[in-house]
């Protein structure tokens, strides 16, 4: 099965803008592949290499080393673009065209014509909440509206793979929620989605797998539980005991506390967890919840870089 995106040992260096002989390594030996129908989130600080990686997968720039395949082909091949939708970071479009004209323009480039194009344009304008503004010039659109029309143009060809660079940037909370819902609906339709974001909660909520990139290097690629270092997982057991056994239960372990009428005990590691859980079960207490508590993505990135991601 052809993978939507595959990076094999991809590196990219740029010439330093001020020092002619110096090179900047934007991406270093990046290897990963996406599965069909999954959402992959790129996370990293400014200048980490997210946008460079996205530009390479769109064929705007070329890797210095390594190989990239999009739907099994070179990203520069115009045929590849037939099944791709792309939303750039802080999109800007032709200011003198209206929203409807822009979708007509981009739709024609993807080979859609006539009533099919008009119907799809109108449907997308409704989906992104711009139908009433469809005949307004884009010069009169706000930043958030440009982001929405950008999303609409990315979906005009009903793409199988959607690539978005900071899709939530510039949107108010309602707009962000709507974009998130669109991303989820794309997954429900079986499409693959790649998006980058600074907002770790968005990445965590939406992504099946997360790619953490730092100074051009891939730190992790996997689900949030997969990328958590084992020593960062905290184990917790919640249980209850009959009234006559409550005193005994409370003195069972050191550090036990009561939360919402339940006993809660934190464990030091997996071994400690197993010992305590066995003991609780043997004593006949009722276990309500037991398992690993994973740190949030923000905590993971925070602990790795030593600073909070914005």
């Amino acid at each position: 099965m052809v993978k939507p995106i595959e990076f094999k040992n991809v590196s990219k260096t740029f010439r330093h803008p001020m020092k002619v002989w110096d090179r900047i390594e934007a991406v270093k030996d990046l290897s990963f592949s996406m599965e069909n129908g999954e959402i992959a989130g790129f996370v990293g600080h400014n200048g980490a290499g997210k946008t460079t990686a996205i530009k390479m997968m769109m064929g705007f720039i070329w890797p210095t080393a390594g190989e990239i395949q999009v739907n099994g082909k070179d990203p520069g091949d115009p045929d590849v673009k037939k099944s791709i939708g792309f939303l750039p970071e802080r999109p800007y479009f032709y200011s003198q065209l209206s929203g409807m004209e822009l979708l007509s323009y981009f739709g024609k480039l993807t080979g859609i014509k006539g009533t099919v194009l008009r119907d799809r344009s109108e449907k997308l304008l409704r989906r992104v909440g711009l139908f009433d503004d469809r005949n307004r010039k884009l010069s009169g659109y706000s930043k958030g509206m440009l982001q929405r029309i950008g999303l609409a143009q990315a979906l005009i060809n009903d793409p199988q793979l959607v690539i978005m660079d900071e899709p939530m940037s510039g949107l108010d909370p309602i707009g962000r929620r709507e974009v998130k819902e669109i991303i989820r609906s794309l997954k429900r339709e079986g499409k693959s989605v790649v998006f980058s974001s600074h907002i770790l909660a968005d990445i965590e909520n939406l992504s099946d797998r997360v790619l953490i990139i730092e100074k051009g290097l891939m730190k992790h690629f996997g689900t949030v539980p997969e990328i958590v270092p084992p020593d960062r997982i905290r184990y917790k057991i919640e249980f209850n005991a009959p009234d006559e056994m409550k005193d005994a239960a409370f003195s069972l372990f050191k550090g036990i506390r009561v939360v919402s009428n339940r006993f809660v005990i934190d464990c030091e590691d997996l071994d400690d967890f197993n010992v305590k859980l066995t003991s609780i079960v043997q004593k006949g207490y009722t276990v309500h919840d037991a398992g690993g508590v994973y740190p949030s993505l923000e905590e993971i990135v925070f602990s790795q870089s030593g600073e909070v991601a914005s």
Binding site: M58, G59, F60, P78, D79, K81, K82, I84, G85, F86, L87, P88, R90, P91, Y92, F93, Y94, F106, L109, T110, G111, G150, Q153, A154, N157, I163
Partner: peptide, 13 residues
């Protein structure tokens, strides 16, 4: 203005 990005993301050589 970066209007080129969405344009070149279409099947346009």
């Amino acid at each position: 203005l970066k209007t080129l990005y969405p344009l070149l993301s279409k099947p346009l050589s």
